[in-house]
Design a protein around this nucleic acid. Structure first.
Lengths: 165, 165
DNA sequence: GAATACTTGACTGAATTACTTGGTCAATTC
DNA sequence: GAATTGACCAAGTAATTCAGTCAAGTATTC
């Protein structure tokens, strides 16, 4: 399990797709403009996301990408894995001697941890992130209303589009 | 929150320290030999670990490093943070225009996730990792014993030194 | 004061990341 | 059916990070 800016870009782009995928396909050019990620870099990332069948592409005018499933059933671990292409470099020789046994021990401890992180990210979907954030935002808004004295025109702040259920 | 091989090296080295710290300080040369990490790279990592007061160095002959606290109270997130030096690059301009609002939204969603990962790793200590692994290993051993017919000399497999409580 | 062992900083090759350029191919629109 | 749109593909490149080297130190013990 590796977690770099590359994974962040991928998750961010997928979130953008989830947020705007309501009315038809979204072009990479749009995502590029909104998220300020270079178009060609997005192409590379989406090439992998498509191969892992996390997104579906539609070519030609009016085309673009959309999620292959609902945002609620696409998990962060899948997205990160898709672009990380982990070659599993942490393979210990397993020579059986003492020195190597020592190394294998700590290596296994790390593996355990890595598995736990992976499992953790496998439990969080794009939909979860959107929903949790929205819930928190609603709570914030209510707090602010109470503090500011129940102004009712605050609804224009709503930026989140309708996500597909 | 970033999770690269650098963090893995740091955690691995700290685990080595926790495993061998029972009888006096451990030299980086020892860790280097056991974990096959270059000595100079370890020096760089431990420079940061020391500045964050996760380890204590003892100079001169017979010197080395030991954990500043018990393994049970040093958390993975601390170790990773110490060597990652996160400069918090994900700062959005906050210009207030629509385009930027879009960017900030996904950015915040990612921040939420990052916080969750951080919190997760803040809940796991070096001691936890060692203990969980040992428990699993004991279970494995018992299973194997049952399968192999209760051989009792299997105790020599025990590689884990006594860690300071 | 000689040997040991950590400390610091500057420097370097290799790998990865992020991005660019310049195309090709498929679907739509006029 | 030619132009347009936007996905797809393959090099190549700049910037950054990783991992390791080298060469000074400074502190401690014998």
């Amino acid at each position: 399990m590796k977690l770099t800016t590359k994974g962040r870009y991928a998750v961010t782009a997928m979130l953008d797709l989830a947020l705007h995928g309501g009315q038809g396909p979204v072009t990479l050019a749009d995502i590029s403009a909104r998220q300020e990620i270079s178009l060609s870099y997005l192409e590379q990332l989406f090439s992998r996301l498509r191969r892992r069948e996390l997104v579906i592409s539609i070519r030609g005018p009016g085309g673009g990408y959309h999620l292959s499933r609902s945002a609620a059933s696409i998990y962060i671990a899948e997205v990160v894995d898709a672009v990380s292409e982990s070659l599993d470099t942490t393979r210990c020789g397993n020579k059986g001697d003492f020195q190597n046994g020592e190394k294998c021990l700590t290596h296994h401890l790390w593996s355990d941890l890595s598995d736990q992180i992976h499992q953790f990210l496998s439990g969080i979907s794009l939909g979860d992130l959107m929903q949790r954030h929205e819930i928190r935002q609603v709570a914030d808004r209510q707090n602010r209303r109470q503090a500011e004295g129940d102004s009712d025109t605050i609804n224009t702040e709503r930026l989140i589009d309708q996500a597909p259920a």
